[in-house]
């Protein structure tokens, strides 16, 4: 086997932070996602928490959601899986801000 055939499991040890650190994000000053906290506290599914590929939505102990907009792929999954009308407001970030793919 070659030098690259190391431990089979090595890749699985990439932490989520390291995973996101491979992506170029130019963080803007305006949050392009907003979440209506009151609606989220009443939400039982919270699909955004698991579906968001960037893991931007985090449930809080009081049943709400805290979110980040900084490391967003701008895919739109969150507002499409959200079962509560208007709970997630999503627009594109300002021009020039946001994700910049290099090898996608």
């Amino acid at each position: 086997m070659s030098a690259y055939a190391g431990g089979m499991e090595r890749w699985s040890r990439v932490s989520f932070e390291d995973r996101m650190a491979t992506v170029d994000f130019r963080v803007g000053t305006r949050a392009h996602i907003t979440v209506d906290g009151d609606t989220c506290r009443g939400c039982t599914t919270k699909a955004c928490v698991t579906a968001c590929p960037a893991n931007l939505f985090v449930p809080t102990s009081d049943g709400g959601i805290v979110f980040n907009y900084e490391q967003c792929f701008e895919c739109g999954t969150c507002y499409l899986v959200c079962s509560n009308e208007g709970a997630i407001t999503w627009t594109y970030p300002d021009g020039g801000d946001g994700v910049v793919f290099h090898r996608s």
């Binding site: 690259y4 055939a5 190391g6 431990g7 089979m8 090595r10 890749w11 990439v14 390291d18 995973r19 996101m20 491979t22 992506v23 590929p53 960037a54 792929f73 895919c75 739109g76 999954t77 499409l80 793919f101 290099h102 090898r103 996608s104």
Partner: peptide, 17 residues
């Protein structure tokens, strides 16, 4: 698939609809 990706280092993660 494991033998195909063994030891390869993550270079970029991405997602899109």
């Amino acid at each position: 698939i494991a033998p195909l990706v063994d030891g390869a280092q993550l270079q970029e993660y991405s997602a899109h609809l």
